[in-house]
Computed example of a mutant assay.
Amino acid sequence: MKSLDALPVGLLALADAVTGSPVGQRAASVRGFDVSNHQSSVDFNEAYADGARFVMIKATEGTVFEDPNFGKFHAAAAQAGLVRGGYHFGHPGADKGAAEADFFLRHGGGWSNDGVSLPGMLDLESAKGKPECYGLSAEAMVLWISDFVETYREATGRYPMIYTGPSWWKECTGDSQAFKDKCPLVLARYSSAVGPVPGGWKAQTIWQNGDKSPWGGDADVFNGDATELKKLAAG
């Protein structure tokens, strides 16, 4: 995911609630990717033909930025048959979590019970030019995230996914376990292996394992099969 001024980051992760594995890892064969205004054009039909089955598309950032590519990318992804969802790059502390959730919901971040729309995703990571953890204590950060999460849940009936990296989560939330049973984890780690999962989550559901997908944007892998991906979309 990339903020307007963010350094590159990478990795998606979602909590796995149905696996019998001790660590929740399953056959991860469903590929996907994420895109934003940093990509001028994307061939979603080619992505689908190559095996991609889902995409996350940046919709908003803070309370003022609407991604200019969101509408056309979302429509093209839908036409190509991809499961898709929007994401919001958070600015904790700059505005209330509820205010950012409302802005996200008004500009593409909602969820539809159509079987092909993923719940929205809150992107939490460091941003260039911003203080570490946005100047918030771990307690204040957890409260900000809760404000966003509960506002989104009240509006849509779904908890949003949370995108973050292990080191950011540990440093900025104190490795909080407050969301492990609510929000699917989107884990950011560029590596050859998923590695330890923070925050008490059982496992990632999507692993973003690189900053260059074959179709543009970052590369993701869903922790499950295509049927389970559709179950996540259906809620």
Results as ranks from 00 to 15, higher is better:
Val149Gly: 00
Asn209Ile: 02
Leu187Gln: 08
Met161Asn: 05
Pro198Met: 01
Pro160Glu: 07
Ser117Lys: 05
Asp175Val: 02
Tyr87Ile: 10
Gly174Gln: 06
Asp114Gln: 07
His88Ala: 11
Gly216Met: 09
Ser137Trp: 03
Ser167Gln: 07
Gly110Glu: 05
Ser112Ile: 12
Trp215Arg: 08
Gly135His: 03
Lys180Phe: 08
Arg158Pro: 03
Leu136Ala: 13
Pro92Ala: 01
Cys183Phe: 03
Asp218Ala: 09
Arg106Ser: 14
His88Tyr: 12
Lys128Ser: 15
Leu105Lys: 02
Asp95Pro: 00
Gly216Trp: 04
Ser117Pro: 08
Asp181Leu: 09
Ile206Leu: 12
Gly115Phe: 13
Lys96Thr: 15
Asn113Gly: 14
Arg158Met: 12
Phe179Lys: 03
Thr173Tyr: 06
Ser137Gln: 10
Asp102Leu: 07
Gly85His: 08
Met161Cys: 02
Ala101Thr: 08
Gly200Arg: 00
Thr156Arg: 04
Phe104His: 05
Trp168Ala: 09
Pro184Phe: 10
Val194Gln: 12
Thr173Gln: 03
Met121Ala: 14
Gly81Lys: 11
Met161Tyr: 01
Gly115Tyr: 15
Val186Glu: 00
Val149Cys: 00
Ile145His: 00
His107Ile: 12
Met121Arg: 01
Leu185Ala: 08
Thr156Lys: 02
Asp147Ile: 01
Gly120Asp: 08
Gly90Asn: 05
Leu136Gly: 10
Tyr159His: 12
Ala155Thr: 03
Ser137Thr: 15
Thr173Ile: 01
Glu132Ala: 14
Pro198Val: 06
Gly81Glu: 13
Trp168Lys: 02
Phe89Gly: 06
Ala98Asn: 04
Glu132Asp: 14
Met121Asp: 06
Gly109Thr: 02
Leu143Met: 03
Gly210Phe: 05
